[in-house]
Computed example of a mutant assay.
Amino acid sequence: MERNKIQVLYDACQALFSQKGLPTFQQIHYLKNLLDKIEAIDVGIDEFGLCDSPVSDANVHGSRGLLCGRGFSEITYIHIHECDSFSIGVFCFPAGKVFPLHDHPGMTVLSKFLYGSVYVKAYDWITLDCTGCQTIGLGGRVVDEVITAPHEPTILFPRSGGNIHSFTALTPCAILDVLSPPYSQEFGRPSTYYSDIPIPSLAGYAMLEEKPIPNDLVVQGAPYLGPSIVTVYDHNFGQIDCDNHM
């Protein structure tokens, strides 16, 4: 039986991120190519749906409908899979919503813009001071552009590529993310938010200062309605389960 695109993505992530040592540059680009083949319909989203409700009555996945890409009123996260090594999920944005400047500490992140247009601003650290109560430092801007789907997947690394970034949805849009390793407060990988203060005498640079989670940031959850994936939870005993997320 032919594997669906999300199963292929999961299998590749499991192989690359669970191995000893870091994936090679070539392996990361192999993963990027897999992401590039994925469309909104492959993760259970109808990007063209004009329904008022987030869930449409389209019936293309057996008895399940699709999530309506234009039916969200808040930023919404669709959880597909998470383990110790990586996570896979989709952020859906209504037009006008902003996901503020935040980081991905020690992570490699691959993102595929499934549909829509979004303004992306991203920095990498130039200098960093973590000795006080708040993290502060000089950031160099590496991305400052509007990205419109279709667009090749982006890759950011722990210290390059725009590890600190923000999104402003110009239209309803969705972003498929692969994070390795995933966020973890326990293992020192919390999500930290920042304000950026431009430096007039240094074009493209800003002072980045840690700030509390914005009070107006609302992220809702939605069920994953794409095809089921088979996930291996216990390699020692060969235990296999089916991750339906229903």
Rank of each mutant, 00 (worst) to 15 (best):
I41G: 05
Q26Y: 09
D57T: 15
K37A: 05
F48E: 14
D46T: 02
D46L: 03
Y30Q: 13
C51G: 12
H29F: 13
P54K: 01
S53A: 08
I41D: 07
S53E: 09
S56T: 08
V43R: 05
G49D: 06
I41R: 08
V43S: 00
Y30P: 01
L34R: 07
V55Q: 08
I45L: 03
A40C: 11
H29W: 10
S53P: 00
I41T: 08
I38L: 05
C51L: 11
P54A: 02
G44L: 07
S56F: 03
D52S: 15
I28G: 05
Q26T: 09
G44W: 00
S53F: 07
C51F: 07
D52A: 13
L31S: 01
Q26N: 12
Y30K: 08
P54N: 01
Q27F: 06
G44I: 06
P54H: 04
D52Q: 14
Q26V: 08
V43E: 02
K37Q: 13
L35W: 07
N33D: 12
S56M: 01
V43F: 05
D46F: 01
E39P: 03
I38G: 05
K32E: 14
Q26I: 07
D57R: 13
E47K: 13
I28M: 13
L50V: 09
V43P: 04
L35R: 03
E47N: 13
N33Y: 11
Y30N: 08
I38W: 06
A40F: 07
I28D: 10
A40D: 06
D46V: 06
E47M: 11
G49L: 04
A40T: 08
K37C: 04
F48K: 14
L34E: 07
D42Q: 03
I45C: 05
F48N: 14
L34A: 02
P54W: 01
I45W: 01
Y30W: 07
K32I: 14
D36Y: 09
E39L: 12
L31C: 06
C51H: 06
K37S: 06
D42L: 01
S56L: 00
D52L: 12
S56A: 05
G49S: 15
K37V: 03
L31P: 02
L34T: 06
K32V: 14
A40E: 04
L31I: 12
E47V: 09
L35I: 13
